[in-house]
Design a protein around this nucleic acid. Sequence first.
DNA 1: CGCAACAATGTGAGCGAACA
DNA 2: TGTTCGCTCACATTGTTGCG
Length: 255
Amino acid sequence: MHDLAFGARVRGVRVRLGMRQVDVATRSGLSTSTVSRIERGHLGSLTIDALRSVAKALEIRVDLVPRWRGGDLDRLVNANHSRLAQACIERLRAAGPWEVKPEVSFSIYGERGAIDLLAWHPQRRALLVIELKTAIIDVGELLATLDRKARLADQIGSRFGWVADHVSVALVVADGRTNRRRVASHIDVFRSALPLDGRRLGGWLRRPTGRAAMLAFMPDSHARTLGQPLAVRQRVRGPRAAARRGDPCTKPGVR
DNA sequence: CGCAACAATGTGAGCGAACA
DNA sequence: TGTTCGCTCACATTGTTGCG
């Protein structure tokens, strides 16, 4: 929907409800200037949170639907996930005789889903459930999902003839500042569920004895050997910063 | 109520050092 | 070698203020 049309609808609802901009601002916890910007269609300088707050104050529901070149958006997101999976598989195979199955779907007792990577170490009879994340959004849901998959892993693995002595889990996160900060801000929760960190991962993969629960970042250095880095996002530097760093490639005015 | 200028604040990236 | 932490800087967002 066009920004002007969005603003016009907000204004229309507000007038219909007999409210002033200051009333909407009070109810949404924002300033009157923000309400005014929305109604005039100046959405480019506002956050989605601000739009939702104002909409909620007027009992308007806002659905956000990202679209990009038809189906290319899904392919872009999947490409990042696939690179992370490929990097993990390379690391497993470098560590030992791991057999790996990607995207293992399951439907057991009404519980449905898919394990990103299910790995099997035949000599140690170790089953490893790997959850891949290019971005950390909801920590609680993430850990609950991982726990659910670990609980069902025995039955899922038996489909391939893998009868495990023990099931381990690993959360592999794409390395990046944002992901590291998100993990750091919930470090107590993560460490209580996944005590082993990336430093212990290599050793455990070489000698997978006993149950383990790990959280590891997949470093860019490893991912670059497979193509592009796994960074969740790349900052677009403005001309001032680029000039300060002597970057000749950055064109002025491109942000 | 609309608009513009400015200030305050928050967020993320870049970088280097310290640590395991 | 991989991980963590702290600092600085750039940029985005929002509020305040004043004028029409």
